[in-house]
Design a protein around this nucleic acid. Structure first.
Lengths: 171, 171
DNA sequence: GAAGATTGAGGATTCAATCTTT
DNA sequence: AAAGATTGAATCCTCAATCTTC
C-alpha cells in the first residue's frame, strides 16, 4: 500500500468511526435511536406504504438478514415497526413502519441532518461532494460485482435478481 | 440535505459497512482477527518497541478507552498483546505487542492489503486518492476541533495536550 | 478532584443451526 | 433442495460506575 493510499485509508476509517460514534451518541440522547435503527426506519419511511420485504430491507441497509431480524425484533418491541407475513409469498415477511415509529423518525431527522451537515457537508465544496459520489458508487459497483453487496450468509446465486433490481439505489 | 448530498452520504455509508464486513470476514477466516483487533495490533507494530500507552492507543485507533480495554484484554487472553504498568506514571498502562502477536499480524497483512487494493484502491485514480485525503483529513480536523476525536466518556479538557500531540497522525 | 484505566450489565452483531414455504 | 427468515450462543460495544494513582 503506497504512502498516499495508507494515509487515505487511515483518514477514511478514522472519519467513519468517529462520525458514526458522534452521530450515534447524539441520536441516542435526542431520540433513543442508534444509527442502525435510524437507517432502518428511514428506508421504511421512503418505501411505499412504509412497508418493505425483510430481504429487500436487509440489502438496502447493507445489513445481514440475521442482523436485520434482530434489529427489527427490537424495533417491534419498542412499537416503532411491526412484521406481517406476506399474503402472496408465504415465506416473505413485510416490515412496516408504525405511526409511533414515523413520529420518532420525523422528530429525529431534522436534528440529525443538522449534525451531519455541521460535522461533514458544511466543510466540503459542491465539487467534493460529487467526487465522493463518483468514488463510492464505483466502489459499490465493484463490491456488488464481487458478490459482497450481499451479506456473507446469503447464497449468492439466488439473490442476483433482487440485486439487479435494487442496484439502482446505488448507481 | 440536498439531492447530491443525500446520494453521497448513502453511498459512503453503504461502502463503509460493506467494506468493513467484507474485510472483516476475510481477516477472520485467514487469521482469526477482526478489523478492530487488526487496527490495534497495527498501531502497536508501528510504535517504537511495539509498545504504547493505552490512552494514546485509544486515540489513534479512534476507540473509546472502555472499548480498547475490553479489546486488549481479549488480545491478552489470546497471547497477542500484554499489559504492564508504566514505571514513571503509576496510573498509565503500556500495551505491548508480543512475538506471537507480531507473527499473526505479519501473516495477516499481505492478504489483507491485497484485498483492500482489490476492493478499493485498484478502482481509483491517483487523483481520487488525493481527493479522499483532502476531504477526510478536513473532516477529522473538524471532528477534533469539536471535541469528537475524543471518545464521549473521556473528559475533554485534560486530554487537549495529548490530542495536539497526536493530531499530526491525521494532518 | 481529575487522569488513566478497568469492570459488569445490557444491548448489538456474527455465525451456525433451524424452521417454514416453495 | 433453495429461498426467506428466525433463533441461540458467543463475542463485541456502550454506558455508567468504580478503582487507583496523581
Amino acid at each position: 500500500l503506497g504512502d498516499e493510499e495508507r494515509r487515505a485509508w487511515q483518514c477514511m476509517v478514522a472519519t467513519f468511526l468517529l462520525l458514526d460514534s458522534a452521530l450515534g451518541h447524539q441520536l441516542q440522547q435526542e431520540s433513543g435511536l442508534s444509527t442502525a435503527h435510524f437507517r432502518i426506519l428511514s428506508r421504511l419511511a421512503e418505501a411505499p406504504k412504509g412497508s418493505m420485504h425483510m430481504s429487500d430491507l436487509a440489502i438496502t441497509t447493507s445489513s445481514s438478514q440475521s442482523r436485520l431480524s434482530h434489529a427489527v425484533a427490537r424495533l417491534e418491541e419498542q412499537g416503532w415497526a411491526l412484521r406481517t407475513k406476506c399474503p402472496e409469498n408465504g415465506r416473505a415477511v413485510h416490515a412496516t413502519l408504525t405511526k409511533s415509529g414515523f413520529r420518532i423518525l420525523r422528530d429525529a431527522v431534522p436534528v440529525h441532518v443538522r449534525e451531519v451537515r455541521r460535522l461533514f457537508f458544511d466543510n466540503l465544496t459542491r465539487e467534493q461532494v460529487r467526487q465522493l459520489i463518483t468514488i463510492f458508487s464505483r466502489t459499490l459497483k465493484v463490491l456488488s460485482d464481487e458478490g459482497y453487496a450481499i451479506p456473507p450468509e446469503a447464497t449468492v446465486f439466488g439473490r442476483r435478481a433482487d440485486l439487479d433490481r435494487l442496484k439502482k439505489a446505488f448507481t
